[in-house]
């Protein structure tokens, strides 16, 4: 069985001898940079470098998927947000928001051919040509609600959900349509799985009712761009009470953090979608021991997760031994 068959089989909840193992959130670490001879921040803006780092998790650690790009600022930058690309160990960060609430947001003309959107699409094509038979290509994208927060400031966006809900809808409507077009282009370039991260839709921020009003319909709209590609929705925090609502987006898989009890998640989801996660990215992966990482992976496998993976993005300096330990636990 190729990693691709296993990963896509796991997402389709097929019976297999073991779950898949990989990473659908930010997956690059310094050991992969060393292997690839490619580093951040250069790899954020060069398709060849991005593709090389995108396969590095598979080559260095045995992840059963490739993945690009490496941050959640690609879409906001296409809308004109100022981004600091960070450094070797720091992911890109937004510096300034391009819009204020009175503005009329618009999808930037020709955005698919420009900037880091074009870089990501090109990197997917390279990965597809070189590794597409063996590995599934996962593209990391940003949820419409989170992008809208990047456009006007997340704090202001949250406030306006009470004071000016129409303004909030005005922005998310545009970001959802842009995201749909971007996803369609990624899929046309060869992506097998879209992972959409929507951190601003977390239960730390919103009630389930607010999620249904400001995230659900727009996530569905953006997912329409996926066509036959599989869809994973990643939301940070303790999403136990949100799982039902996340399923309603039509996602094939849900990627969740360690703040959700693994067994409880399996119970709630009850085979309706695949579960991806939920080894803690900070503890144990970044700060714990290999033994703790192995024990966590085994516990999550036994709970019945379909893809054993970090619960959120990996920190670039996550120790090699910790990642090796969790992969080995699953692969044997």
């Amino acid at each position: 069985m190729t990693p691709k068959e296993r990963f896509l089989g796991a997402l389709a909840r097929k019976e297999m001898d073991r779950p898949a193992v990989g990473c659908v959130t930010q997956s690059v670490t310094v050991d992969q940079m060393e292997w690839a001879g490619v580093e951040w921040p250069a790899a954020h803006t060069d398709a060849q470098m991005m593709a090389k780092l995108g396969i590095a998790g598979a080559k260095v650690f045995g992840f059963e998927n490739a993945r690009v790009p490496f941050c959640l600022t690609v879409e906001a930058e296409a809308f004109g947000a100022t981004v600091d690309l960070g450094n070797r160990v720091k992911t890109p960060m937004l510096k300034a928001h391009p819009y204020s609430s009175e503005d009329e947001p618009a999808i930037p003309e020709g955005f698919l051919e420009k900037g880091r959107v074009a870089t990501a699409i090109e990197a997917v094509k390279i990965l597809k040509a070189e590794y597409g038979e063996e590995y599934p290509i996962v593209a990391g994208t940003t949820g419409p609600l989170t992008i809208a927060g990047h456009l006007v400031g997340t704090e202001d966006l949250l406030l306006m959900m009470i004071t000016e809900p129409d303004t909030v809808h005005k922005f998310i409507k545009v970001t959802a349509e842009m995201e749909k077009q971007y996803i369609a282009a990624l899929v046309a370039a060869g992506v097998d799985v879209i992972n959409m991260s929507d951190p601003s839709a977390s239960t730390d921020m919103l009630s389930a009712e607010m999620f249904d009003e400001f995230a659900l319909p727009y996530t569905k709209h953006a997912f329409e761009g996926c066509g036959d590609a599989k869809k994973i929705l990643h939301i940070c925090g303790n999403t136990t009470s949100l799982l039902e609502h996340m399923i309603n987006t039509g996602a094939d898989g849900l990627s969740i953090e360690e703040k959700v009890d693994s067994a409880e998640a399996v119970n709630i989801v009850n085979g309706r979608v695949a579960l991806v996660g939920n080894i803690g990215s900070v503890k144990p992966l970044y700060m714990g021991t290999p033994e703790e990482c192995a024990a966590d992976a085994a516990r999550i496998r036994d709970a019945g997760f379909n893809i054993i993976a970090p619960g959120c993005g990996l920190a670039a300096e996550t120790p090699k031994a910790n990642i090796e330990a969790f992969v080995k636990t699953i692969k044997g």
């Binding site: 704090e155 949250l158 406030l159 959900m161 009470i162 004071t163 730390d204 921020m205 919103l206 009630s207 607010m210």
Partner: peptide
Amino acid sequence: SKQYFLPQVLLAAQ
């Protein structure tokens, strides 16, 4: 107690 979420808290703070 999850009666309030971040938007309500932010508004109260303002």
